[in-house]
Design a protein around this nucleic acid. Structure first.
Lengths: 158, 158
DNA sequence: TTTGTAATTAAGAATTACTCTTATTTAATT
DNA sequence: AATTAAATAAGAGTAATTCTTAATTACAAA
């Protein structure tokens, strides 16, 4: 699952920071590098746990703030949730996920989807379009097979 | 904005509950009715505030649990967020919103979007498809015009 | 109708996840 | 090297949601 980060990625990261007036700190590089390498959708706490050995001083708050800054400047993405833990993603390509409404699990959709249409209001109304996320509401195979059990047993999502 | 709820809606609500082994309580009817009539995207607290006069004993927790049960059985939808307040929606048609990554505001897209393609993996893999949500990542007109100001000034989203 | 029982509810405590405040440190510029 | 705005760490604070327990209620079966 883990991918090695390329020099080109770091170069474009550096360029992005400069363009947005963001200082290039050791912490930011470490956080971005981890997000790129993991290839997953880690939460702030996941990143915190993963980096705490190599960066003992790095705080949860700094990681969370940094990830939000990355998102707000369009460097990374947030995987939709229905509240719960916020998950980040360095893959800025077209995103599609399935969300099991029963257990809350998020599944990646491997196959690239066909184009999902354009954004009608954007140009006319002064919105700047950065990207798009698609989430399919589903019931996953596991939940389907255990259907009939009490709803209360299905605990709240993580 | 408010719409009057039809008998047919209550009938299909009743049917849905029976099909999912959910008891039809006064509280559940009141909550569903409010969601249908409001036509908006209320949070749990919005529903709580709106119903507290007519139903003094109805607790926040019951409302939240009920709305989650509705969602988990496919009766209502949750409007995507990137964490913050969870918002519910009784309109189960195709949903599209714009999310300003800078200030966190969610904008409805009025025009119905063209079809967004189908779900490639669903049938083959045993997922049951309930519906689909699309979110466009944007920078809203307000944030565009105030660009250049410090990122720190842009406080966390609500 | 009455009774049995599992589902539902209310209340408040607890938890989770995130955000703010303050003092200190640092990166990039001068 | 000095300057300064930005970034950081630590811990406190907050918002939102969920859990626990005991009481109540809807529905089904007798």
């Amino acid at each position: 699952m883990s991918q090695s980060i390329r020099t080109a990625d770091i170069e474009s990261f550096t360029r992005h920071c400069r363009e947005h007036g963001m200082k290039i700190t050791l912490q930011r590089v470490a956080i971005y590098r981890y997000l790129m390498e993991s290839g997953a959708h880690p939460s702030t706490d996941d990143v915190f746990q993963a980096l705490r050995d190599d960066f003992p001083g790095l705080s949860f708050d700094t990681i969370n703030r940094t990830l939000m800054t990355f998102y707000q400047t369009g460097l990374i993405d947030i995987v939709e949730s229905r509240t719960g833990v916020r998950r980040f993603d360095a893959n800025m390509g077209s995103h599609s996920h399935m969300h099991c409404v029963s257990c809350g699990a998020m599944f990646d959709i491997d196959d690239p989807l066909p184009d999902h249409g354009c954004l009608p209001q954007a140009d006319a109304s002064g919105f700047e379009l950065l990207g798009k996320n698609v989430v399919f509401r589903v019931i996953c195979p596991t939940c389907r097979s255990s259907e009939g059990r009490s709803l209360r047993e299905g605990s709240a999502w993580k």
